[in-house]
C-alpha cells in the first residue's frame, strides 16, 4: 500500500513537470501553429538562471529570477526569430530546431556538459507521512506549483480580454483578426506564458532531480510533446489530464514492469489515443 501511495504521489510530481512544459507548448501550438523545439531551451535557461542566482539570494527568490529569464528568452525568440516567419509553419519549426541545437551547445560551453548540483530549499528536504508512506516533501512542492499555474491559467483564459483572444484564436485565428484584433500580440503573450511555465518547470526539475544539465530540457520535452498530442493541442485542461495519465502510467509500469517499460507504454498509449481519437482527448 505504501509503495502504491509513494508511486502515485511521485507520479503526480512528474505529471506536474509535464503539465508545466506541455501547457505552454500546447497554447503556443494551438494559437500560433508553432511546434516549438526551443521550448526545452526555455526550461534549461530557467534552470541555469536559478542555479546561477542561488549564489546571491535564497532559492525561492532565485526561482523567480529563473522564471524572468525564461520569459525574456521566450519573448525575444518570438519577436526576433518566429515573428518574421509568420504563417510559414515549417520554417518556424526549422528555426526552433536550429535554436534548440545551438542553445544546448551554448549552455554547454558556458556551464559545461556535466550535471551541476542544484540548490534546494531546506524545507523540501524532509519527508511527509501519507497513509503510512514516507513521501519526500519536494513532490508536494511540484504538485502545488503545477496546481497554482493551472488555476492561474484557467482564470487568465476565462476572465481576461487576452484570455478570450487566446481561446478564440485557438479556434480560428483568422476570424480573430477579422474582428479587428491584432492577434500577434497574443502570440508574444502565449510565448511569454509558455516561457514562464517552462522555466518554472526547469527550476522544479532541478530541485526534483537534484542536478541540472544542458540536456534536461530536451528529455522532458519529448514527453511533453506526447502529453500535448494526447491532451489535444491548444487545450490546457487536456494537457493537465494527459500529463497525469502519462506520468502515472510511466511511474507504475517502470516500477512493476522494469525500467524503460513505462516509457514504452506511454508511447503505446499515444498510439492508442491516436487511433481512437486523432485530435486528442479534449476534442471529441
Amino acid at each position: 500500500m505504501s509503495t502504491i501511495v509513494l508511486l502515485a504521489v511521485t507520479g503526480l510530481g512528474l505529471a506536474a513537470l509535464y503539465f508545466l512544459v506541455a501547457s505552454g507548448l500546447s497554447l503556443v501550438f494551438g494559437l500560433a501553429d508553432v511546434l516549438n523545439f526551443a521550448h526545452g531551451l526555455f526550461l534549461s535557461v530557467g534552470a541555469y538562471a536559478t542555479w546561477w542566482a542561488a549564489d546571491f539570494m535564497p532559492v525561492e527568490a532565485a526561482v523567480l529570477v529563473g522564471v524572468a529569464a525564461g520569459v525574456a528568452t521566450a519573448v525575444l525568440v518570438e519577436l526576433i526569430l518566429i515573428r518574421p516567419l509568420y504563417r510559414r509553419t515549417i520554417e518556424q519549426v526549422l528555426v526552433t530546431v536550429g535554436l534548440s541545437l545551438a542553445g544546448v551547445a551554448l549552455l554547454q560551453s558556458v556551464f559545461g556538459a556535466d550535471p551541476r548540483p542544484f540548490p534546494r530549499p531546506t524545507w523540501v528536504e524532509g519527508v511527509v507521512p501519507v497513509f503510512g508512506a514516507r513521501i519526500p516533501a519536494d513532490r508536494f512542492l511540484l504538485i502545488g506549483a503545477a496546481l497554482l499555474v493551472f488555476v492561474a491559467l484557467a482564470a487568465f483564459l476565462r476572465y481576461t480580454r487576452y484570455g478570450l483572444i487566446v481561446r478564440a484564436g485557438v479556434e480560428n485565428r483568422e476570424m480573430v483578426t477579422a474582428l479587428g484584433i491584432d492577434v500577434r500580440k497574443a502570440f508574444t503573450l502565449v510565448f511569454a506564458i509558455g516561457g514562464a511555465a517552462a522555466a518554472l518547470a526547469g527550476s522544479l526539475a532541478g530541485i526534483y532531480f537534484t542536478t541540472v544539465s544542458p540536456g534536461t530540457g530536451g528529455s522532458l520535452l519529448i514527453f511533453a510533446f506526447i502529453v500535448v498530442v494526447i491532451g489535444g493541442m491548444g487545450s490546457v485542461p487536456g494537457s493537465a489530464v494527459a500529463a497525469i495519465l502519462v506520468a502515472l502510467l510511466q511511474q507504475f509500469v517502470n516500477y512493476y514492469g522494469g525500467s524503460g517499460a513505462g516509457d514504452v507504454c506511454v508511447v503505446a498509449l499515444l498510439a492508442v489515443v491516436l487511433l481512437w481519437r486523432p485530435k486528442g482527448l479534449a476534442k471529441a
Binding site: 481561446r167 478564440a168 479556434e171 480560428n172 476570424m175 480573430v176 474582428l179 479587428g180
Partner: peptide
C-alpha cells in the same frame, strides 16, 4: 465563423 467554444456574450465582447 462564430467561436463555438465561447458563449454568445463572450463572442460579442471579443468583437
Amino acid at each position: 465563423c462564430v467561436f463555438a467554444g465561447l458563449t454568445v456574450t463572450e463572442n460579442l465582447r471579443l468583437a
